[in-house]
Simulated assay, not measured.
Amino acid sequence: MDRKRQLEEQVVQLSRQVDEMRVRLAALEGGSGDRASATTPRSRRDLLKLGGAAALGVAGAVGAAALGTVPAQAADGANLVIGNNNSTTNKAESPTILVDDNATNGFTAFPGGTSPLSGALRVHGGSDAPGGGNPTLASGVDAWASGATSYGVFGITDVGVGVTGESDQGIGLYARRSGRIRQEPRSPSGVPNYAANDFEQVRDANSSLWLSGPPALAWRQASSFQVFPGPRRVYGVGTVLAPGQSVTGIDATKKLDGTPSGVPAGATAAYCAISSYQTGVISLYPDGTIDNGIGAWASQGTAGNGVNQGYNFVPLSAAGKFSFTNYFTSKAMYFDVWGFLFN
């Protein structure tokens, strides 16, 4: 803005000088009685030369300044200048919008076996050195947005695909640096209530992961089973329980000393070695639910003939806790966690 004001002031000053010369020329042609000096132009031609030089000075000053000035950044509503930083004047409230007419845009094919581009904006980025020797990233499109609620790239569609990444032989989508990927949960919980695509995955409101695939694009719930290198005791100090006695709120996520057992809250079941020095039956159920008499551990034999042990999946609450009820005989129970199941 200061540079523009300076140029305007120079033009005004030079224009004033030209006007003064016109007045002097008119006075001389009218027979002014002023005495001319030896250096004063004595003919109309000389005066015209002087006026022309001044006029050229005006045009020269403006032209030289224009030639020496870097193109200005585009303001809102103006054309964008290629190669310039337009970030300070072209604001987000006046975005550049390209509309695809779906008829005459054609396709742009790039080498490398990738699909041709047909979007409203097509960018052909650079490439790294042969063999990947260039440490600089070669990008087609770069975007930056700052803040926890910002999006570097945001793709929106009604019933299509929001963002697609394609690679001929490399990686289609890359969660770089943090490696984090987030999914919105779908409601209701359980089997997704819509037709699946090939090899699709979604999470429901309970954070359960659902995968689709053949045959017939059926949905199945993904699960993981982790086994520990050794047991971690979560219950059992030798307390003898009477028949019908219940023990509730056992935390499978913590060992007897209060340190983590390795079972996470939210696990579906804990894989436990359940032991007793006496025979009998117990029922197992998630903490906070009723004893339905299923998921039972049972042992047969003669009391005092050694340890009675079995391996069971013990159902857990969302907090990672379980309960059990002792039946038929008095006995002390012991629970050692060997792993967990996660759906």
Rank of each mutant, 00 (worst) to 15 (best):
L47C: 09
N90M: 06
N102C: 09
I82P: 10
A103V: 09
A72Q: 13
G119A: 09
R45K: 12
P135S: 13
A64M: 08
S115L: 10
G52C: 09
L50H: 11
R42I: 08
G133S: 11
G125V: 05
A78W: 08
P111W: 00
S87D: 08
T108D: 07
V81F: 03
G126W: 04
S127P: 05
G63Y: 07
A61D: 08
T88V: 11
G77T: 04
R45T: 15
N85W: 04
I97W: 00
T114N: 14
A61S: 15
K91W: 03
N105P: 00
G68C: 09
G52A: 12
L80M: 05
V62C: 01
L50D: 11
V99W: 03
G119F: 00
S127D: 07
V99A: 07
A61V: 09
L98C: 08
L50Y: 02
F110G: 13
G63E: 04
R42A: 14
G51W: 01
R45C: 06
K49G: 15
N105W: 02
G131V: 03
L98Q: 07
G60Q: 04
T88A: 12
V62E: 03
T108I: 07
G113N: 06
G112P: 01
R122I: 14
T69I: 00
S94Y: 14
G52D: 12
L50A: 15
N84R: 15
R122P: 01
V62R: 06
P130R: 10
F110H: 00
N105R: 14
P111A: 05
H124F: 06
T108Q: 03
A54Q: 15
V70I: 13
G57Q: 15
S94D: 13
L121H: 01
N86Y: 02
T114M: 07
E93P: 00
A92S: 14
A129I: 00
L117I: 06
L48I: 13
N102H: 11
G52Q: 15
N86M: 04
A109P: 02
A92T: 03
F110V: 09
V70K: 12
L67Q: 08
P135H: 07
E93C: 01
L48A: 14
V81E: 11
N79K: 12
T96D: 06
N79Q: 15
G113W: 05
A64W: 08
T89K: 10
A66C: 04
G60R: 09
P71N: 07
G119K: 00
G60T: 07
N79F: 11
I97C: 09
L67T: 05
S127N: 11
G131T: 05
K49H: 14
G77C: 02
S127V: 11
A66S: 11
T88K: 06
N90F: 00
H124E: 12
F107N: 12
S118A: 13
D100G: 12
D128G: 15
G60M: 03
